[in-house]
């Protein structure tokens, strides 16, 4: 009996303290870019051999490495690790601006016989929905997460399905479509919303990150861990692609440069 009371009291105190701390925390925004240095191979064009009437409408390319103008590297991933030792631990503080996101589902769309987006970010607090926006053809989305149960629903044209992904994943997992074998995408499930994917130009934005030094994971689908990068002009190496980055209040600029040479062998192997 005594013990239970003690536990209760302790919990209450802890809650109070944490609330206080939360109040004290400042937040900054990371505005960054992924750039690739050097020549990169061009991506092969895909000629669909199935459901051509739908899939043949738009041009399809391999997407293992998407490079925008001025060497912007698209679909590169950065996410915060709440604890460098335990990747599944969420960041201690999550800004309240993210609360609205909980109601919004993370979506992976089958559109034009490709996945949109190529890399979907899911916060465990969110629902995860797979959609099929293509007319008249069905798609299946075969995902093999590490911690969550695998899924492989067949989604009829215009349909959608919600897949439970409530455990954080250390790394993105692949989602593919068996019917259209060229289709592929990745999904990362995080315990916090601090994850961002670079857009076509290589730019990304991560808002309201707690101020302080955090460990960030850098990842790209072909290279996996970005083991050697230049961060804001400084060459760095880390075997698991985890870099310590200090976040200041206000805007933080983060320029991440990856050497094209690292891609070559990997892409050749995948192709």
């Amino acid at each position: 009996m005594m013990r239970q009371v003690q536990v209760l009291m302790l919990t209450a105190v802890a809650a109070l303290v944490s609330a206080q701390v939360a109040h004290a925390v400042d937040y900054g925004t990371i505005k960054g870019t992924f750039t690739i240095k050097g020549m990169t191979p061009s991506m092969k064009k895909i000629v669909p051999n199935k459901d051509v009437e739908v899939c043949g409408k738009q041009e399809l390319h391999e997407e293992v490495l998407v490079v925008g103008k001025d060497g912007g590297l698209a679909n590169a991933l950065i996410y915060a690790l709440g604890d460098a030792k335990d990747a599944n631990k969420p960041m201690a503080n999550i800004h309240e601006s993210y609360n609205a996101l909980k109601a919004e589902a993370a979506v992976l769309d089958n559109k034009g016989c490709r996945f949109e987006p190529r890399l979907a970010v899911v916060w465990t607090a969110q629902k995860f929905t797979i959609k099929n926006s293509d007319p008249s053809i069905g798609h299946n989305s075969f995902g093999q997460p590490f911690a969550n149960p695998a899924f492989n629903p067949l989604i009829p044209a215009g349909g959608s399905v919600t897949v439970p992904l409530d455990k954080p994943e250390k790394l993105p997992f692949k989602v593919s479509c068996s019917i259209h074998p060229w289709m592929g995408s990745y999904v990362i499930v995080r315990p916090d919303p601090y994850a961002a994917v670079s857009g076509e130009t290589g730019a990304f934005e991560m808002v309201n990150v707690p101020v302080g030094e955090h460990t960030f994971q850098l990842w790209q689908e072909t290279l996996g861990y970005l083991k050697a990068v230049t961060i804001n002009g400084k060459a760095e190496k880390e075997r698991r692609g985890q870099y310590k980055i200090a976040v200041k209040k206000g805007d933080n600029e983060l320029k991440i440069v990856v050497d094209a040479k690292d891609f070559k062998t990997q892409i050749d192997k995948v192709k």
């Binding site: 299946n140 492989n152 067949l154 009829p156 349909g159 399905v161 068996s178 019917i179």
Partner: peptide, 13 residues
């Protein structure tokens, strides 16, 4: 209900 593993048969929704 589950689809068939390893050969990619999906499960109907």
């Amino acid at each position: 209900r589950n689809g068939i593993d390893a050969v990619g048969m999906p499960a109907p929704t």
